[in-house]
Simulated assay, not measured.
Amino acid sequence: MRRVQIAVIGYNKDSCTEAARKAAYKVGSEVAKAGAVLVCGGLGGVMEEACRGAKDNSGTTVGIIPENDASYANKYCDIVVCSTIGFARDFIVAGTADGIIAVGGGVGTRIELSAGYMLKKPMVAIKGSGGTADEYGGKYLDERKRVEIMMVASPKEAVRVLLEKIGKNNNAGLGHDNPPHT
């Protein structure tokens, strides 16, 4: 049986705050403890801290990097996918995930949330982690109300809520029968 794949998205290395680093590490830990696979953009900041948290808890990590050279990935990525398509890889990160957790973030995080929104992926934002997560948590991205970006208070709650939502979607047959038409 295929394992659940959770994308952790957020600040890059240059923009990452200490609060976001701590939250990302805890999210990665919780993803691993839940037996899910952590998927991310494979670089620094939130991505690296989430991977480190997962690895410290015997988890499996996948980094989908923009480059064509695996050496760009952070050292905690078990599997590196060299997308070779630059930051368009944000669409692959969102598409690969069964659900998405946002920790802070800037425009790249917005792109991943937008792709997840169009694909009706369950999404959670961690309150107080800053940036895109705080800006869009608890909201829909447009008037179509495809999927709410749920706002939660902690990394543990983020993983729990997301896994519940993924389970409900899988039981209802959602996600596979709903193409991302506008």
Rank of each mutant, 00 (worst) to 15 (best):
R2T: 03
R3H: 12
V4F: 12
V4M: 11
V4A: 13
Q5T: 13
I6S: 08
A7M: 09
G10M: 01
Y11Q: 04
N12S: 12
K13Q: 13
K13P: 00
D14N: 15
T17I: 04
T17F: 05
E18G: 01
R21K: 14
K22R: 14
K22D: 10
A23T: 07
K26N: 05
S29W: 05
K33T: 01
A36S: 15
L38V: 08
V39D: 02
G41D: 07
M47I: 05
E49S: 12
E49G: 02
S58W: 03
T61V: 02
V62P: 02
V62W: 06
G63L: 07
G63N: 10
G63A: 06
I65E: 02
P66Q: 08
N68D: 14
A70W: 02
K75M: 07
K75T: 12
Y76I: 04
T84K: 15
I85V: 15
I85M: 14
G86M: 09
F87M: 15
A88F: 14
D90A: 08
F91A: 14
F91T: 04
V93P: 01
V93K: 06
I100R: 01
I100G: 00
A102I: 06
V103F: 06
V107Y: 08
V107S: 13
G108A: 09
T109D: 06
R110W: 06
I111Q: 02
E112W: 03
L113M: 12
G116K: 11
Y117Q: 07
M118W: 07
L119Y: 01
K120L: 00
K121L: 04
K121C: 04
P122L: 04
P122Q: 07
M123V: 04
K127R: 15
S129Q: 09
G130N: 00
G130T: 03
G131K: 00
G131Q: 02
A133C: 03
E135A: 12
E135Q: 09
Y136W: 14
K139Y: 06
L141N: 01
L141K: 03
D142T: 13
R144M: 08
R146E: 09
R146M: 14
V147R: 12
E148P: 09
E148Y: 08
M150K: 15
M151R: 12
M151F: 01
V152T: 06
A158C: 11
L163K: 12
E164C: 11
K165L: 13
G167S: 15
A172P: 02
A172Y: 11
L174C: 04
H176R: 09
H176N: 13
N178M: 11
P180L: 13
H181I: 15
T182R: 15
